[in-house]
């Protein structure tokens, strides 16, 4: 309808489903470690092999501890990633950082919790220990004692308040020689619909709307996960549209600075990005059933190429076009007038 009424602006739409496997495909890399110390003042420090790079993994690690111990976030500090504290790490990559390190951290917390349960049973007569806001409960009954009482008692009793745990993803295997196996812990799914308007005089374009339904399982942090989805889809669109790396025939990088290599800015991101979380059960092998989110949503951006192509074809229906990403405004302009 829009396209019939507008001679020089054409809209294009593409649907982009995704399916992405989670795990390092090199099976031996799928393990991680975590170290937790509870100090005698009740404060907790955590080290894992996960590297914080803006993706929010430290926040997720903190959530694991806070939820297990029932103490406030101010009691827990996530420390740097350090090879003396955590040895033999796999890189934080493959979207698997939170899963692998979070599972190891969960195991360390469970071991500490079991020791604390014993202390609570013997010395505070609590048979069903629960901790909420730092207060010790026996089931639903507030015992009047708090986290610090419990830790100090455990320390006096010479209970080990440190734990190091190791997690290795179960089930996975892959035979590289025959190319068969079960390499992934699970897959992440989703679908995006991308709508673009192309200015057919200039070859420029703008994404009006990106609508995403993404399978996060049971997201443990929707702020962080939405941030990852938004960032990834914009990075994917950038790759398919503005970001053009040019090496000349001599192998010299021509696009060697931000003046010649364009990434999406506030003006070129889609006007609207709507993210809906698919109601799914999550997966046991994801940390707290919260599925990996780092890489999969980048691939929604692939649809940007095909949305633009559909708009170009609405303007120039008879020409044959190559498929050569990114679809920069220069290439769009050439295609709009190809054969005319």
């Amino acid at each position: 309808m829009f396209n019939e009424q507008n001679a020089h602006f054409k809209k294009g739409v593409a649907v982009q489903p995704i399916c992405f496997g989670i795990s390092f495909t090199n099976t031996m890399m799928n393990h991680a470690r975590a170290l937790v110390h509870i100090y005698q003042d009740g404060s907790v420090v955590v080290s894992t092999g996960a590297v914080e790079m803006g993706q929010g993994v430290n926040t997720k690690m903190l959530q694991v501890v806070v939820q297990k111990f029932g103490v406030g976030a101010e009691n827990v500090r996530i420390e740097s990633t350090n090879t003396l504290r955590i040895a033999n790490t796999s890189p934080t990559a493959a979207s698997a950082g939170a899963d692998l390190n979070g599972k190891a951290l969960e195991m360390a917390c469970v071991s500490l919790w079991e020791r604390l349960e014993n202390v609570a049973a013997e010395h505070f007569s609590i048979s069903n220990l629960k901790i909420q806001n730092g207060m010790l409960f026996d089931g639903f009954q507030n015992s009047g004692n708090n986290w610090l009482d419990l830790i100090q008692k455990a320390f006096q009793l010479r209970v080990n308040l440190s734990e190091h745990a190791h997690y290795a993803t179960p089930m996975i295997h892959f035979d590289k020689v025959i190319g068969k196996g079960h390499p992934f812990a699970y897959h992440v799914y989703g679908t995006a619909i991308l709508e673009v308007t192309v200015d057919c005089l200039r070859g420029t374009y703008h994404f009006d709307k990106v609508q995403i339904v993404h399978d996060l399982g049971k997201s443990m942090n929707t702020h962080i996960d939405n941030g990852q989805i938004e960032g990834a889809v914009v990075q994917g669109i950038g790759w398919m549209t503005l970001e053009e790396i040019i090496y000349n025939k001599e192998g010299k990088l021509i696009t060697n600075a931000l003046s010649t290599y364009k990434i999406p800015d506030i003006y070129s991101v889609p006007s609207e990005i709507n993210i809906k979380h698919l109601e799914s059960q999550g997966h046991e092998m994801a940390i707290q059933k919260s599925k990996a989110v780092g890489e999969p949503p980048l691939m929604y951006g692939l649809g940007a190429y095909f949305a633009i192509r559909n708009a170009v074809r609405a303007f120039n229906p008879d020409a044959e076009f190559e498929i050569d990403a990114p679809y920069t405004p220069e290439k769009v302009l050439m295609d709009l007038y190809k054969g005319r």
């Binding site: 068969k180 897959h187 995006a192 809906k276 698919l278």
Partner: peptide
């Protein structure tokens, strides 16, 4: 052609807990 439970990937893993069609249908 969207995946569904029981399908096989070319690398031998069997599709389970598939959300490909659910995601598509909720996006449409």
């Amino acid at each position: 052609n969207l995946l569904q439970d029981g399908d096989e990937f070319s690398y031998g893993q069997i599709v389970d807990q598939c959300e490909a069609q659910n995601a598509w249908n909720s996006c449409e």
